[in-house]
């Protein structure tokens, strides 16, 4: 596992389809993420971005098709614990009954990876890098949304993942905090070379740090864009998604409210 950690990891999805209760959420998706690159999955809410992330993380199983990490099918990756896949959840998903320090230490302690002294040193280093020093003994409920996301990122980084997956990392944040999160993700990718997949509808994030961008539309993924080609995409849906028009005279405004 250590030897393979040195090798950057790529992801390949072939004919991935996911059906929930008879409803097809993802239809025949094909894409690949090159090692060390940031792949941004964009699309309106409810198009299956988070579902796709869960499939890559191995939390749900594909209905048909397959996802491979460096050519190894995901099932085998999970079974053999071959690569570490870190998922940073939209709301952080920190353990509310544990302090921030215990949240971050849980992975090491349960897998008996290193001594308590080493765990403390590692956590301190990562918290310092993310500007979070001094919050170790606080509980997750006392943190702001932005801090929770950064702690979740710290937890993901401490796992030393081969692939980092982010679910809406900038949602519910003000522009300033969102841009600091974008900077963090970008610098982590640049400095550590961790292959990153981000589900987001934030065009600023996609433009700033995405190497390739896929836009999900009704569960299907069309062309894969670069930040430059995305802005000039010859697709009405994408153009409308990136530059929505705002109509103040809503045609369906209910008359009883007037």
């Amino acid at each position: 596992m250590t030897a393979e950690k040195q090798t950057p990891v790529g992801i390949e999805a072939k004919h991935v389809t996911k059906v929930f209760n008879g409803k097809t959420v993802l239809k025949d998706l094909n894409f690949s993420v090159k090692p060390k690159e940031v792949f941004v999955l964009m699309g309106p809410s409810g198009t299956g971005k988070s579902v796709l992330l869960r499939l890559i993380a191995g939390l749900d199983e594909v209905t048909s098709g397959n996802i491979c990490i460096n050519g190894t099918p995901l099932k085998e990756v999970k079974r053999k614990n071959k690569y570490v896949l870190g998922l940073v959840f939209q709301a952080g998903a920190l353990f509310n009954s544990l302090s921030i320090f215990d949240n971050l230490a849980l992975y090491f302690r349960e897998h008996c990876l290193c001594s308590e002294k080493e765990i403390t040193a590692r956590i301190e280093r990562v918290l310092e890098m993310l500007n979070l020093k001094g919050i170790e003994q606080q509980m997750p409920s006392s943190l702001s949304g932005g801090m929770k996301k950064r702690v979740a990122l710290a937890r993901g980084l401490l796992m030393e993942p081969d692939v980092l997956l982010f679910d809406e990392p900038t949602s519910e944040l003000d522009l300033l905090t969102a841009s600091s999160i974008i900077e963090l993700i970008g610098s982590v990718n640049r400095r550590l070379g961790i292959t990153t997949v981000i589900a987001s509808h934030d065009i600023l994030l996609a433009k700033s740090i995405g190497h390739h961008i896929g836009v999900l539309q009704n569960g299907t993924l069309g062309e894969i864009y670069t930040p430059e080609t995305l802005l000039h995409a010859d697709n009405a849906f994408i153009r409308n998604f990136l530059n929505p028009t705002i109509n103040l005279d809503h045609p369906q405004f209910p008359s009883f409210l007037l």
Binding site: L59, V84, F89, A93, F95, N96, L106, Y107, M159
Partner: peptide
């Protein structure tokens, strides 16, 4: 149930716990 709803169980699974 609260852990399941707020994805803490999923977080455990991604940590291979």
């Amino acid at each position: 149930a609260s852990m399941a709803v707020y994805q803490e169980i999923d977080a455990l699974k991604t940590m291979n716990l």
